[in-house]
Design a protein around this nucleic acid. Structure first.
Lengths: 377, 377
DNA sequence: ATTCTTTCCTGTAACGTTACAGTAGCCTTA
DNA sequence: TAAGGCTACTGTAACGTTACAGGAAAGAAT
């Protein structure tokens, strides 16, 4: 905070000086220092010990006396000592940073913030910090991930929207940099991941629609390049085949398509004689677009067609209980990923950990006064 | 990456070793080093210069010859030199970290991620990193903000959900730590902030409802402790008074109240004879709850009542054009805040910068086929 | 020829931490 | 009593960077 410090800053310093007891100010320095943070040296001087001893005491090393440890710890506590991150990082090479590399387009009603909340929550008890970066994989497959590795900017990397053959996974594996992903590849590379079982989701969604008497089903899945699009599609196709239902194609739309395209496409589709009577959607906004398109064709949800959707919030359950949902919990995913990546960094966890979140279709109970709410959303 | 490195990691190192040309390996070391990152020393050795010279050359210092600068820069470029953050931080005390301290409850359909995208975008061109932390102000007014200051964990801090008399603003001002906020206080402390003009929003919303013939208006505002709740309320009250309308209280509900409470409260309210015929909502989800409650009472949006809502996404415009919206753009806010805080940190910007985003009520054009979509959401 | 400038470069020290190689003192053991 | 081995501590060096105080070489002014 040196340099061109403005007057407000200086004012702040003056205030602090008034509050600080000057008992321990260094004798050689100018008197008006802004309450310098205590370092190991400070504690060592106060305790009459060497810096090394203090460091080792705070690390609970076996060759330091218990009494000394207690004294040092107490002193550190009372001074509010916090190890200097830069010092540790420079010496050990460990940054205590976890980087989350996000794709902007993945935004579906705040899933990324849910992910961030989960990670932050898990990290808040640790010494690790969460750094967030944006990445447009279309522009550059590696993007900031390469930069992070080359600059040593993080101890571990988290990312999502995994492709079956993912350049980032390959790169980080080659470089030996710890990472964990939301989603998985086809590559047979072993690494920690958290995934939602989209195959099971699609299967169960199809079964649910079948149990509602629906026979002609359509899937609005994730963008085809992503791993979980394949999983969802294969679950959908298998269940449709097993149950002897009919599969209706929605053309080239997916959950990332613009609202108007989905709505228009579904609108067109629903005017055909062989229109679908059930939809499985991979995303909340897309399900709204689908419903809007179908309703624009004069059809009624729950009478002429049904929709099952995977959502991360409670919106549908709150406002449109006629649409059935499977909840994908990104906050839990974030927590899990944070713990997994720390495990990888510290070498305490196996490379081969993963979690497959099994979906449950939430059948909305039809509480009378809630039914009216169906009209909205 | 040392310590308990798993086999996968070792495999990675081996691969890299194959790719690295061993021309510049240090003679004294073991031969199988994992492609050490170049430092100033590396460049200095290669250029036959002193480390200081290289440092100053890369900083474009005036006392270094142009030819030397060019040579050093080219060398640095070709080696992929990136300054070591820990070294810089240790020496200069500058962390190049911007901390964003988020309140979880503020989540309204992903506004926090929009904020993060904006900040990240602005920061991606700079040397600064975005660190995200969670904070529950109810549990501890300062929370991680105190920790950041005491640990020197960031050069600047961003936060939102400002209160009229905000402990965080006071604390950071006293400590002289650069910060910028989304929202503003009543305290008369000068600092950079970005705010949405909620007073103007409420006024315009009221005017819009009045122009639709609505006469009995209710406000579902933000939680009363926050600054912008006051702004919105005062704009609302003033416009209602000026236009000679009637103000209907919604009791103790606000945009943070649980869906059921809002819905039930509105439901109850709308069965009274003196029910409101127009709503101004401070948040998207609350507006849905309000609409659900009113519709549960058998009333029809656009006929019996109208709603104006402030939203950060396009959901209403897409799916429920009968509800009119003012768009609050958090991505732009994030960009602005990032630039402002960097300006404060580097001392290039005035303390007294702020931006008041003037709202525009988006009156939905009634394109025929879009009208049908009204049924959804 | 001497001094003074200017230009361009350099070495040293320090930021806070931890790895490593000691060491002083004491207690066992033979 | 000497050797060996613990216990509990310490000093030095190094991580990569930049501030600072020089300083050599070359040209300009006296």
């Amino acid at each position: 905070m040196g340099g061109a410090a403005p007057s407000a800053t200086t004012g702040g310093f003056a205030l602090i000086d008034n509050m600080v007891s000057h008992d321990e100010t260094r004798s050689e320095d100018a008197p008006a220092q802004p309450a310098a943070r205590p370092t190991l040296k400070t504690i060592a001087r106060l305790a009459g010990l060497g810096v090394t001893t203090v460091s080792r005491a705070l690390h609970d090393a076996p060759d330091i006396g218990e009494e000394t440890k207690a004294r040092v710890r107490q002193l550190a506590e009372s001074l509010g000592y916090q190890p200097n991150r830069a010092g540790v990082r420079l010496r050990t090479g460990r940054s205590h940073v976890i980087a989350l590399v996000l794709a902007t387009e993945a935004e579906e009603l705040g899933i990324n913030s849910q992910l961030i909340y989960g990670i932050s929550e898990a990290l808040s008890a640790s010494a690790y910090q969460l750094v967030v970066m944006l990445h447009d994989p279309a522009a550059d497959p590696l993007g900031p991930i390469r930069d992070i590795v080359e600059a040593g900017a993080a101890d571990g990397i988290l990312f999502a929207r995994i492709e079956p053959n993912d350049a980032r996974v390959r790169f980080l594996t080659e470089r030996g940099v710890p990472f964990a992903t939301h989603g998985r590849t086809d590559m047979g590379i072993v690494h920690p991941y958290f995934d939602f079982d989209n195959e099971a989701y699609a299967e169960r969604a199809v079964r649910r629609l079948a149990s509602l008497g629906r026979r002609r089903l359509a899937l609005v899945g994730p963008p085809p390049g992503l791993s979980y699009a394949r999983h969802m599609t294969s679950g959908f196709c298998r269940a449709v085949a097993v149950l002897n239902l009919e599969r209706v194609s929605v053309g080239s739309i997916d959950t990332d398509s613009p609202h108007e395209r989905i709505q228009d496409e579904i609108h067109r589709l629903m005017r055909r004689a062989d229109r679908p009577d059930g939809f499985v959607s991979g995303g909340a906004v897309a399900a709204l677009s689908v419903t809007a398109g179908a309703e624009a064709a004069g059809l009624v949800l729950g009478r002429d067609f049904d929709v099952v959707v995977k959502e991360s919030s409670d919106l549908f359950r709150k406002f449109r209980p006629a649409i059935e949902t499977a909840r994908e919990d990104f906050r839990t995913a974030g927590k899990w990923l944070a713990q997994a990546i720390i495990g990888r960094i510290e070498g305490t966890a196996d490379v081969d950990v993963h979690f497959l979140d099994v979906p449950r279709i939430e059948v909305s109970e039809t509480v009378p006064e809630r039914v009216a709410a169906t009209v909205v959303l």
